[in-house]
Design a protein around this nucleic acid. Structure first.
Lengths: 228, 228
DNA sequence: AAAAAGAAATGACATTTATCATTTGTTAGA
DNA sequence: TCTAACAAATGATAAATGTCATTTCTTTTT
């Protein structure tokens, strides 16, 4: 199995603060796994005893509502860490993580993480920063969801998706989502999402080819997302 | 000025993990202040160089939307800590904190906090737990806001307000909010909030006397909040 | 205590969004 | 490659929510 010390991914997250020794220990204890498209890496309400470092692949973080609807809270890609919130707060996982394409991840047992937190302040601080940033973004989302109409939220989401996933070779947003998933991100009915996407297309703000979405007029999208 | 070692508030938050020495240092550097009703303890976008420990009083945490509307993200009362997210992530404050009644707070400089984080792992862990829990709740809110109708969100909010602030001597929820603030909490127009409150009253689920709200039928409220 | 300002309540109406039904298009398994 | 299953699109309509105008009530100021 490959060594954490050599893994480029660590440079994107809190693991870059670890010493060579700490990385070695984690290397010895980690397990690498492959998650196929559609499979869950973790499930809301279940306990986990470690965290996941995503080497490759994209996933969605969702929450099941009391009415049975799925709400997509966040999209995550390679370089990110998942599960630290749960092991830090000592609570079950709050979100279901589902692979949107094949993923390569490393599982690192809770014991090693807690030991590292105890002996490496820089690592702790990085984790805190990470969660703090997430909290900040979450608060933004609350405000958006509560106060912006669906159209504005769709514009916002399209911009954010491009920011997270970048572009494929044809200039489309480099993520394949169903219309239902888009609807579940902005919190609306699938039909409403479809209609608004069609409108954006008609107004030449975006182009649609099947599930491929290309942003054509970002400044208009930005205006819409801010209510103009 | 009073000593932190004697302060009962510390037992409600991360400060209970501090040693006597650490508490003494903080005692020496802290400043106590009084915030009058309506005044801001911190303002969205501004930098702070320390954190606040709330000894007494209630406040709202809000975010100003691009459309100029205020979104209430959270209510906080004595015992809580504010501002740690900002000093940990080294970013400006993300939320405006406004006193809903006179508040007594202690300000503790960033330097002392960072030093304590570096030398006291238990304190770090408590802070992480705290932020992790907040993140978890924030994710819940996103889902609620995105998918539940206004009526359900109002029911939810009333239950949550009672949980946070408890009851006054007459059995009312022990917090005075304007209808506008209630509307800004659930993310709706003031008129809509008023109408729905009136409906709840008509259906004898709550009683209203001016700004005093009493919950009469909690199980119905719980059902409504879950979409039944 | 009266006047002014602000908050709450309510009606009428417009707009947004959801739901249901149906058609068309696409994907993947037999 | 065909066809069953699923996804997307669209229309018609209902329901939810927002906006504006007005009245009533409450609080604050003079």
């Amino acid at each position: 199995m490959s060594k954490c010390g050599q893994c480029i991914i660590k440079s994107f997250n809190a693991f870059h603060t670890l010493t060579i020794d700490e990385l070695d220990t984690i290397s010895d204890h980690k397990t690498s796994l492959t998650i196929k498209k559609g499979e869950n890496l973790m499930t809301e309400g279940h306990a986990i005893n470690g965290l996941y470092c995503i080497k490759q692949g994209k996933c969605k973080l969702t929450k099941l509502n009391t009415n049975g609807k799925e709400q997509i809270i966040k999209f995550v890609k390679g370089g990110d860490i998942l599960g630290h919130r749960s092991i830090l707060s000592e609570e079950p996982v709050g979100l279901t993580v589902t692979a949107l394409e094949e993923m390569k991840v490393c599982f690192i047992p809770k014991g090693d993480i807690m030991q590292t937190i105890n002996q490496n302040t820089a690592f702790s601080l990085q984790l805190m920063k990470n969660i703090s940033n997430q909290l900040n973004h979450a608060n933004d989302s609350i405000s958006q969801m509560a106060q912006k109409p669906v159209k504005d939220r769709l514009a916002e989401t399209l911009l954010k998706l491009e920011e997270i996933f970048g572009l494929d070779k044809d200039g489309n947003i480099d993520i394949i989502l169903t219309r239902e998933e888009i609807a579940n991100t902005i919190g609306t009915a699938t039909e409403s999402a479809i209609r608004l996407l069609s409108n954006f297309k008609k107004e030449k703000i975006i182009s649609l080819q099947g599930k491929h979405i290309k942003l054509l007029d970002r400044s208009t999208l930005r205006n819409i997302s801010e209510g103009y």
